[in-house]
Write a protein that binds this DNA or RNA. Structure first.
Lengths: 110, 110
DNA sequence: GATCTATGAATGAACG
DNA sequence: CGTTCATTCATAGATC
């Protein structure tokens, strides 16, 4: 497999300019990565179609290198993306499981 | 591992994106839940009176089940409601802390 | 019926 | 890993 770490022509993409009022935010708030549609599509293919839930560090790096041709991205973004999606799925499973209503938790409704 | 861009073959239908930017992450954003007065009242009782700030998934589900008698509601609505209210409180707290102390802070408490 | 505001929803990042 | 925090986006409702 060829991994072209080609420099994306446009760097940074379309990060909206933070409204910089007189009060400078102490934290560098506006640095959050968001996947481009191409990046998102590929990530979803890997996760759902290829059933890649827990990429190794090597896989993360490889994915990152490939996705860089579609926009700015770092290893940690890939790492967090997989972690978050997995966590969300697990969470939704838990919340959507139907519990028998006969529980004794109705103490909340006193 | 194959990373080539492969079409995800129409996953889940094409929900139209709502943003206007070129690289728009697709976001569903269809009709959203709004709490009924009864639901809102109970949620506020739980949050403020019972000081329930971070309900567990089990609590979320139980709350949801109880609130369903007052109108349509899902687990994630309860989840987001608590998250948002807590976030709003933190945000307001931060704003108060960032007020330049010009000596007239007591105006905030009138 | 255009605009404003409050808030539902989403998710990247990070914590314990 | 499950949970929590942060910021942002989108829009239902209110207001004019």
């Amino acid at each position: 497999m060829e991994l072209q770490a080609q420099q994306p022509t446009e760097e940074g993409g379309s990060i909206q300019a933070a409204r910089s009022s007189a009060n400078t935010p102490i934290r560098p708030t506006n640095n959050r990565w968001t996947p481009t549609p191409d990046q998102l599509r590929i990530l979803q293919v890997l996760y759902y179609d290829k059933v890649l839930k827990c990429p190794t560090p090597e896989q993360i790096q490889e994915i990152c290198l490939n996705l860089q041709q579609y926009g700015q991205i770092e290893d940690k973004n890939v790492f967090f993306w997989f972690q978050n999606l997995k966590a969300l799925e697990r969470q939704k499973l838990k919340e959507f499981q139907n519990v028998p209503v006969g529980g004794s938790l109705d103490l909340l409704w006193c």
